[in-house]
């Protein structure tokens, strides 16, 4: 089964940017999926069991922090790596068992996104970043 990345962000262009940034990975057989808010993100995470989730913090409905907690506390999603994308200084305190694996600050560097994603998914990129 191929590697799956889920991108959860309510901003259209941020989703597009992340898609474009990660498009090189699609050549490596990685499938990229999108959710437009927290609730859809939670549902898709449960259905898709992705290997990697990029999660925006500020979203209507369920916030990124809520979705993060749900994923991290779901035994079925133990293999899912969570990266939170947040503006500087907006990271709330997470309970120790529900914290994201890592977070990146906006505005983010596309190269960094690609290299982190490749590392998490265990993919060797065939180009220099």
């Amino acid at each position: 089964m191929s590697k799956r990345i889920l991108i959860v962000d309510d901003e259209n262009y941020i989703r597009l940017l992340l898609h474009r940034t990660l498009e090189d990975l699609e050549f490596e057989g990685v499938s990229i999926h999108f959710a437009e808010d927290g609730i859809e993100g939670r549902d898709m995470a449960r259905a898709l069991k992705p290997d990697l989730v990029f999660l925006d913090m500020m979203m209507p409905g369920l916030s990124g922090a809520d979705v993060c907690q749900i994923i991290r506390r779901d035994p079925m999603l133990a293999g899912t790596h969570v990266i939170i994308l947040t503006a500087k200084g907006q990271l709330p305190d997470f309970p120790p068992d529900a914290a994201p694996h890592e977070y990146m600050t906006k505005p983010f560097d596309p190269d960094q996104i690609v290299s982190r994603a490749a590392a998490v998914l265990g993919i060797d990129l065939d180009f220099e970043l």
Binding site: E11, I14, L17, K106, P107, D111
Partner: peptide
């Protein structure tokens, strides 16, 4: 406001960098 400012800025800078690459 800072969130609202940062979101388009993220897109602008991200796409610019992507295109540069």
């Amino acid at each position: 406001v800072s969130h609202e400012l940062r979101t388009p800025l993220t897109s602008l800078m991200g796409f610019n960098k992507l295109n540069l690459r």
